[in-house]
Design a protein around this nucleic acid. Structure first.
Lengths: 254, 254
DNA sequence: ATGCCAATATTTGTATTACAAAATAAGACG
DNA sequence: CGTCTTATTTTGTAATACAAATATTGGCAT
C-alpha cells in the first residue's frame, strides 16, 4: 500500500486527503462494519507507510463527516449508518461507488420527485433577476451544446440554478445529490443523443413558468420532466423496483 | 482566549473539537466572509494558546464540512456559501445560532412540507414490522408523556422513525434538520401545553395510515399535521409567502 | 515599458519524538 | 466477592524540523 504516497502526488492531492478518501471508501464498502473498531493509528501508519500526523488528520476528516468517532484507549469506532452524513459530497461518492447503482439512482429519483417540483414553484415565486439570468444561461448552454457531455454539464447547471433561485439555503446541499445523479445517469443514457435533446422543451417549459412567476405551472413542468427521466432509470434494469410516488396535485394558495 | 483550553476540559471535549466549534461558529456568524482568508495556523496557535497540531486538526474538520479550503502559501480560505454542508449536524447548529431564528424555522418548515407527506407515504408502502413497532413506540411515548419536554422527545422520535421506515437511506441525514427544528420550535410553544396535546390525534392518523399500508391517507394526514405546526411558526405574521433569504453578513469590530 | 523567467519568501504539508490524558483491564487487598 | 489501586493501551497535545507548493518579487531580455 506504500504506493499511496505516489498516488497522492500524481493526483496533486494532499496525503491526508488521499488517506481519508481511501479509508472512507473502505468503510462505505463495508470493509469495516458499523460498531466495529478500526485499526489504531500506529497500524494505519504501518499499512500506508505514512506519518501519524497524516493519519490523524484523515481520521479527523472522517469524524467530521459522521463516519467514525475516536476515544482514547478505545480507538476509532465506525458509527451506525444513521449517523453518516450521506449528503456530504465525499460520502455520497463513496456510497455511489459501493452500492447497487440502480438502487441508488432510484433513491435519488425518489428524492428529486419530492423536491424539484416544489423547488421550481419556489423559484417561480422568489427568483431575483440575476438568478433568473443564471437559469437562462444554463438553458442556452443546453440549446447550444453539440455533444452530450456539454449538454449534461449545462443540464446540471440548470437544475442547480433553479435550486439557488428557490431562496431556501437549506436546499442547496441537496444539489450535490442531484448533480451526482445527473452526471451518473449520463452513463445510462450515453447512447442516444437524440432522445436526450427531446427533453429540451421540457426544460424550456420550466424556465418559462419561472420567468412568468407561475409556481403552479413550474411545478407541473418539473413533474413532467421527472416523469421523462424516471423512464430512463426504469428501463435500465430489471424490475426490482422501488414503488414510485404517486403525484397527487397539491393545492397551494398562490 | 486562553481559557478555551479549560472550557474544553470542563465540557469533556477534545481541544481540536472545541477549536473547530469555535472557528466554525465564527464563520457562520459572518466574522470571516466567504472568499476571505482566515488567520494562518501560527496566528490561531497564538490566539488560542494551543499547539499547531490541534489547530490543524480543527481546520481539517472544517474543511471536511465544506466550510474552508487550505492551500500552501495561501492559507485557509472560506468557501462560498453554496459549498457549505448546511445539513451537517454541527454546521446546522452554527447556522441556527447565527441566523434569524424565525426565518430559519420557516425554511425548515418549507422543507418539511416537501418531504414529510411523501416520506409518510413511502413509510406506509415500505415499512417492516420492527420499523412500524418503532413508530408505535414513539407514539405511545407521546401519549404517556406528562410534561412537554417528554412529549417533544417522543415527537422527534416519531418523525425519525417514520423517516427510517421510508426505506430511502438518503432521507435519513435530513432527520437532523427535523430534529433540530422540532426541538427548537419547542421554545416557541413552551407556554401552551394544552395546544400541543391537541396534535395527538393528528399523529395518530399518520400512524394508522402507515399501519394500514395506505400511502394516500398517510400523505394527507402528514399534510394536516404540518398545517397545524405551520400555524405555530407563523404566529407573528399572516402572509403565507415565504420571504427570501437575506444574506446579511454581520461584521464584527476587530 | 513589457513580458518572461528565476530566485525568494511564506504558508501549509509531512515527519518525528515526547509526553499527557483518558479509560479499560488487571491485580491487590479488604 | 467486591472495591480500590495500579498498569497498560490508545488517542490527544505539544514542539521541532524540514519538505512542498505557490504567490510575490526582482532581474533580465526584448
Amino acid at each position: 500500500m506504500r504506493k499511496l504516497k505516489k498516488a497522492a502526488k500524481a493526483r496533486g492531492e494532499r496525503l491526508h486527503h488521499t488517506l481519508a478518501q481511501d479509508i472512507g471508501a473502505r468503510i462505505l464498502r463495508g470493509e469495516f462494519a458499523p460498531g466495529s473498531l478500526l485499526p489504531n493509528e500506529a497500524e494505519w501508519c504501518d499499512v500506508y507507510g505514512v506519518s501519524r500526523t497524516a493519519v490523524r488528520e484523515a481520521i479527523k476528516m472522517l469524524a467530521a463527516k459522521g463516519l467514525i468517532v475516536s476515544r482514547p484507549k478505545i480507538g476509532s469506532r465506525v458509527r451506525p449508518r444513521e449517523a453518516w452524513n450521506l449528503l456530504d459530497r465525499d460520502v455520497l461518492a463513496w456510497y455511489w461507488a459501493a452500492s447497487d447503482q440502480h438502487h441508488f439512482l432510484s433513491n435519488v429519483q425518489q428524492m428529486r420527485e419530492m423536491l424539484e417540483p416544489e423547488v421550481a414553484a419556489l423559484a417561480a415565486l422568489n427568483h431575483t433577476p440575476p438568478q433568473l439570468a443564471a437559469i437562462e444561461a444554463a438553458y442556452v448552454g443546453m440549446v447550444d451544446s453539440t455533444n452530450i457531455t456539454d449538454w449534461n454539464t449545462y443540464d446540471v447547471k440548470f437544475h442547480l440554478a433553479i435550486l439557488g433561485a428557490a431562496g431556501n439555503e437549506l436546499l442547496v446541499p441537496l444539489g450535490f445529490m442531484i448533480e451526482s445523479a445527473l452526471s451518473n445517469m449520463f452513463e445510462f443514457t450515453a447512447s442516444h443523443n437524440e432522445d436526450v435533446r427531446k427533453a429540451l422543451p421540457l426544460h424550456e417549459a420550466i424556465l418559462i413558468a419561472i420567468r412568468r412567476h407561475s409556481p403552479g405551472a413550474a411545478r407541473r413542468a418539473a413533474r413532467v420532466l421527472l416523469e421523462d427521466t424516471s423512464g430512463v432509470i426504469g428501463e435500465s434494469r430489471k424490475s426490482r423496483t422501488i414503488p414510485k410516488i404517486k403525484s397527487e396535485i397539491r393545492k397551494r394558495p398562490a
